[in-house]
Design a protein around this nucleic acid. Structure first.
Lengths: 346, 346
DNA sequence: CCATTTTTCTAAATCGTTATAGATCAGCCT
DNA sequence: AGGCTGATCTATAACGATTTAGAAAAATGG
């Protein structure tokens, strides 16, 4: 159509004034080269001359060429998309949103887009993952809320589909992951409680289905053994229970057994609820009882300075997972990127 | 590569055992029809016979045909993607994550994917929007943190690119939006404070650049006039200031002017920080001072039962915006979907 | 019964990209 | 000079879908 599309007034040939999106064809016409040559030049193929490459690259950047994603995807199957699969169940003090933000940051200037694929409480957690793999709608997947033998991970491994997890599975030496060392956290927290003289610790742990619950409980047990303190892990509430449940449970517990002098919480929200519960029955935080928790947001200590908080840097997770996912895509046979963040005791 | 990979050795015909992703071609072969006929049948074109349509649809669902997104996108330009453009600035008590979740819910079973496009504090807010429009990487955009004359909205309107906003602009009668009626909230909150005898109210408002700050302040003014109370809007802190800043400012303020007996906060996090501040200087919430705030998460009242909370249903926003965006795509000339959520006074 | 319309389907082209195989030309060897 | 090699580039086809124009079959009309 547009043989000639320079400057002057033109018959209704698709000309430049339309500001059509530049394609390889545009560059080909401008440079007098063939389309495949332009493509190979931009991809730095070995069989293209140096001068040609430079010329093509110059033109490309001058006219602001950006490869058409649909074209690339159709031809190569590469989507340049990473999918974050997340539950819509909102853990109040939302980690998930920061994970999204930080994955997005990690993807900045990489050419990858981030698509968020939700799954819903009532449906199979495998469904979104299967959808992505079967329709090829992403090049890699990032998962959180990992179970020890997470079926999604099993599925992805079997298909050799690139992925990275926020949390560890039992096979985690085999795949990319980022995790917070909850066992270390629990050891530190338990030791701190013991250090200030607390003897009877109650733990509000994560749901047992999540792998990190095991780590955390193990850590508390270690600390309890070392310090010779009593340890009780509640099994009727978890750090994902509603605030009302946690509050009520803590209140009831302290009334039944006033000798309890320490509480440990696995989440910011359960910590706040637990504080509400203990205060509701007249206990005084930092006086006749202490509470420790993981602090994902600098909030707890502001709220109640007496809370003993151990910080968790959530933002690091997303950026790391983004890198790990890209690595898994680009170099599937390389050793997967793995990181365990150890909390600092201070 | 995998010429023969089913069970028996096979000549290099691409046969069904490969479990190749079914395409229109697959259906065409199975039905003995031509590819375009299959396409038109699935799209319910008027020039295809009833029997044919049924046959095609039956086969399609039997073999689990799903249209290839890249193919559709390349040919039609339709991406079937909606992009949520969000700041990575984490407002602690994260609205954004719930917005993402709820938009995702709203997009369920619509065939649309949700991609999250971040923009970074140091760069132009217009950049991601321009990128999306210029590269055509989405069919519609959802924006939040809206300014009165938001340049992104101006840009999108000018290009006639479908979008919906979480918040109102000055042109909002012309475009799809969802907003919480902050003016009504402020009226209600202000009236409540007056009703319990508070005379001197200090407001920690949203940043003035956000449009809803104006609405909220106007609402407080109305309430103050009606009740004849004193009103002061702080201009050195906002509801987006850090918790430490809010806490310190509130503490200082109450020391300088102990007569202040009421505080209103525009966000959950600033409310908690303000409570910390007032308690730090020995004031007693619910006794010699009161505090009211918007409660996006059922948290405040748990934390401090004395806080006067007005709830905001954040989840409704996302689902509405998803619908609104789709409508803007499908029927650009129709009246845009708009909703103003009025808080209930209870 | 042939011409004409309507219904239903097909062929070819296209979107932007890349893989494959082949073309062109220079330089070099014998 | 003829043949070969290597360096560059081009032509063609393909990915999966849809649009356009046109063909074939069926229905209608006189």
């Amino acid at each position: 159509m547009n043989k000639f599309n320079g400057a002057l007034g033109m018959p209704p040939t698709k000309t430049a004034e339309t500001r059509e999106k530049p394609t390889l064809k545009t560059i080909a016409q401008l440079s007098g080269l063939a389309v495949p040559t332009v493509s190979r030049a931009l991809n730095d193929a070995p069989d293209i001359g140096q001068k040609t490459k430079e010329k093509v690259r110059r033109i490309a950047s001058e006219i602001g060429y950006v490869p058409n994603r649909a074209g690339v995807r159709l031809r190569t199957g590469r989507t340049n998309v990473i999918s974050l699969v997340m539950s819509t169940h909102h853990d109040v003090m939302n980690h998930t949103s920061r994970l999204i933000s930080s994955v997005a940051s990690g993807l900045r200037d990489t050419g990858f887009h981030l698509i968020v694929t939700p799954f819903f409480p009532e449906e199979d957690a495998l469904k979104p993952v299967r959808y992505i793999v079967e329709t090829g709608s992403a090049d890699a997947v990032i998962l959180n809320q990992i179970e020890p033998e997470d079926p999604r991970v099993a599925y992805l491994r079997e298909r050799r589909f690139p992925f990275a997890t926020h949390g560890r599975t039992v096979w985690c030496d085999q795949h990319a992951y980022y995790d917070y060392d909850n066992q270390a956290f629990a050891r530190i927290a338990g030791a701190k409680m013991a250090a200030i003289g607390r003897k009877r610790l109650v733990v509000i742990a994560p749901p047992r289905s999540h792998n990190y619950a095991k780590h955390m409980i193990a850590g508390f047990r270690e600390a309890a053994e070392v310090a010779g303190t009593e340890l009780r892990v509640l099994d009727n509430v978890t750090s994902d229970s509603t605030s009302a449940e946690v509050k009520a449970t803590v209140a009831r517990l302290l009334q039944d057994d006033p000798g309890i002098d320490a509480i440990a919480c696995a989440s910011t929200s359960s910590a706040m609820a637990a504080v509400a519960g203990l205060e509701a029955v007249g206990r005084k935080l930092g006086v006749d009882i202490d509470l420790c928790a993981k602090e994902a947001i600098p909030f707890l200590t502001l709220f109640r300075p007496d809370i003993i908080a151990v910080s968790e840097k959530v933002d690091a997770a997303g950026e790391f997972l983004a890198r790990a996912a890209i690595q898994a895509i680009r170099d599937p046979s390389a050793a997967p990127l793995q990181q365990l963040e150890v909390p600092t005791d201070t």
